[in-house]
Design a protein around this nucleic acid. Structure first.
Length: 596
RNA sequence: GCACUCGUAGCUCAGCUGGAUAGAGCGUUGCCCUCCGAAGGCAAAGGUCACAGGUUCGACUCCUGUCGAGUGCGCCA
């Protein structure tokens, strides 16, 4: 996929893209002169900030990556390119170094322009139009509607929501979707559990909840509601007669609860898709899907070998309806029908994903817990078959969250119904802290979530560190009115920035200039944690610059003796605030003006 | 047995499409508030990137194997 940093607006500029473009232009010029072979693949040519600041502002690997295809020594290419780059007025220094890197030092005015561009673009800075090719569907949470959400769902919810935000920010047309598993045996169990609470609400003593039913207190209100609605009418009915009604009521109640839980995290899905709807209303879209696959010879009747691991006691070697998923990279073909004749979960999922494709999505993202990792190949195979190779499916897995308190693990017991709900966590530590902590880790890394640490307001807790940078910046804008009542962000936007030149100031601008690159990479990889770590780095650069003012008064932001210097620094601070607030909003975290 | 994910500082973790001397926080040691918010900053110490091969100008990153951890393996969802 091509990287794309295209932006809207009058003439916004990004240092990275501008210099990358310059490098490509000069490589093309060299090719035109015959100094380089024509038709070289430039896709691997990159411009990045070198780790060692003595290597200049930017570096390109162009000579290194082109050497082989061009059949030239890296240093020879580098020398030719250096000569070209030096001729550009924006470049003050260019030299070949190491194995063939080209280190570039830029006119400081370019960094100043970067600040102006960020302020010009405002909330649009960092937005891309990388996704103009197609619509993307992000399916996340999809918890069974059998109870309140717990911490495991929490990570799913936050990661999925951040991926959706990220893709939207990168220019994709995003739909956030929740698949309701309301067709299987678990919702029947829910209905039976609710029926028990119904009898309880009518005065019956029910004693211990039988093994296999859901014991949680959260079903008591459902029982009460059923009693109010139906009186004793349901008591006389056979299970087959009361079950559908009770089930519908219970599922609706559970979904309402789940929506509230999600809302407490600031999450709202666009579509709630019911599994049951696939086979309701006189149609059977699962059968339709199987028939569609059958026409393409992707379904057959056969037997599967028994699993090699632990022996299955009631293994029965029977012929069954199978989907040829092994033809699309899966290890085995997969069953579509159960021995009782009903569809498997996977069969429904095939129909569901066919529906997604029919709705025009070309990119599908699914967020699942690590316990479903075995499902990935299967569903990818399904999408590949159903879209005939035209849509791509990515499954993001996350590891489980270990809840801790002061270093001690908190155990949850489903039996007793005393698990820790998502709501408990949000109520105790707050939405922002929960969201940031869930995102401050790679998805597939295990996460210890310590209540004590997450509520602590210190550097140990990256949420506050980043938010504090934003609040500190806001306080400068409040304070500046004392010295220069007429100075504000609008005034700073058009000011002369030539007074900015300290290494710490330019370092911060470099960080800010990388924002669109970070968005692009994180969106493409579906890895929101990259953005969280980036924001930590921006905050760090800002705090460092701030602290420089302690020892060097001339670096303080507010310079009572110089209005232009103060205005220039306000521009830098304003740009920093913009990046932090935009980035945090993608993560779904507030950017506070004040944190006292 | 097979598949997926992972193994980086004492601890918890980053490391972008393969780039230059592998980074951060915590913890440890020593510093910095008469001064824009110290919820902050500076410095020191701390590494066989699990192990062994391979690919190449170059490997924490890609390939193979070994060891170790987690997850899963018709008809649950």
């Amino acid at each position: 996929m091509r990287t794309c940093h295209a932006t809207q607006g009058p003439s916004p500029m990004n240092v990275f893209t501008a210099i990358e473009q310059l490098v490509r232009e000069q490589l093309a010029a060299l090719a035109a002169e015959g100094a380089l072979p024509a038709g070289l693949d430039l896709s691997a040519v990159a411009v990045e900030t070198p780790r060692d600041p003595t290597h200049g502002d930017l570096a390109t690997n162009a000579a290194l990556v082109l050497a082989k295809a061009a059949r030239m020594k890296p240093r020879d290419i580098a020398d030719k390119l250096v000569a070209k780059l030096k001729a550009d007025p924006r470049v003050t220094k260019a030299e070949a170094a190491g194995p063939g890197f080209i280190n570039i030092t830029l006119d400081v005015a370019l960094w100043h322009q970067q600040i102006v561009s960020i302020l010009q673009e405002g909330a649009g800075y960092g937005r891309l139009n990388a996704g103009q090719g197609g619509a993307v569907n992000v399916e996340y949470v999809s918890a069974n509607p059998t109870g309140p959400m717990h911490v495991g769902h929490c990570r799913n919810a936050v990661v999925g929501d951040a991926i959706a935000n990220l893709l939207a920010f990168a220019g994709y047309d995003v739909t956030r979707e929740y698949y309701i598993n309301d067709a299987g045996g678990q919702v029947d169990t829910l209905a039976r559990s609710a029926h028990l609470r119904y009898r309880e609400a009518l005065g019956e003593t029910i004693g211990d909840i039988p093994e296999g039913l859901y014991p949680g207190d959260y079903l008591k209100p459902v029982g009460t509601a059923l009693a109010q609605q139906h009186g004793k009418r349901l008591l006389g009915l056979a299970e087959a007669d009361w079950l559908p009604e009770v089930k519908a009521t219970a599922i609706a109640a559970m979904l309402a609860m789940i929506r509230e839980d999600l809302a407490s995290l600031g999450i709202k899905h666009d579509v709630f898709f019911s599994e049951r709807s696939l086979t309701a209303g006189g149609e059977d879209r699962v059968a339709d899907t199987i028939a569609w696959l059958q026409q393409r010879d992707l379904v057959y009747t056969g037997t599967l070998p028994p699993p090699k691991g632990e022996a299955i006691e009631d293994w029965e070697d029977r012929p069954q309806t199978l989907f040829r998923s092994s033809k699309f990279g899966d290890d085995l073909d997969r069953a579509l029908k159960k021995s009782d004749g009903g569809y498997t979960y996977f069969a429904s999922d095939l129909a569901y994903h066919r529906d997604k494709l029919k709705r025009g999505f070309t990119h599908l993202v699914n967020v699942l817990g690590a316990d479903h990792s075995g499902y990935a190949k299967r569903i990818k195979a399904a999408v590949s078959a159903l879209s005939e190779g035209r849509a791509e499916m990515d499954v993001q897995f996350y590891q489980f969250v270990k809840l801790m308190k002061n270093g001690e693990p908190l155990t949850m017991s489903k039996r007793s119904g005393t698990f820790i709900t998502l709501r408990d966590v949000v109520d105790e530590v707050g939405r922002d802290a929960v969201r940031f902590m869930m995102l401050y880790r790679k998805n597939d890394a295990a996460l210890d979530f310590d209540f004590a640490k997450v509520t602590e307001q210190s550097k140990d807790n990256p949420v506050f560190y980043v938010q504090y940078a934003h609040a500190r910046a806001a306080s400068v804008f409040r304070n500046v009115r004392l010295s220069f009542p007429e100075l504000d962000l609008a005034a700073a936007r058009t000011t002369d920035l030539s007074s900015l030149g300290d290494a710490a100031e330019i370092e911060l601008v470099k960080q800010l200039a990388a924002f669109p690159k970070i968005i692009n990479g994180a969106a493409r990889a579906h890895e929101p944690h990259r953005l969280a770590f980036y924001l930590f780095d921006v905050a760090s650069a800002f705090h460092q610059l701030w602290a420089r003012g302690n020892d060097s008064p001339h670096l303080r932001f507010i310079q009572p003796s110089s209005k232009t210097a103060t205005a220039a620094r306000l521009a830098l601070i304003g740009a920093t605030q913009q990046v932090i607030s935009s980035g945090l909003s993608v993560l779904g975290v507030e950017a506070p003006q004040e944190m006292r």
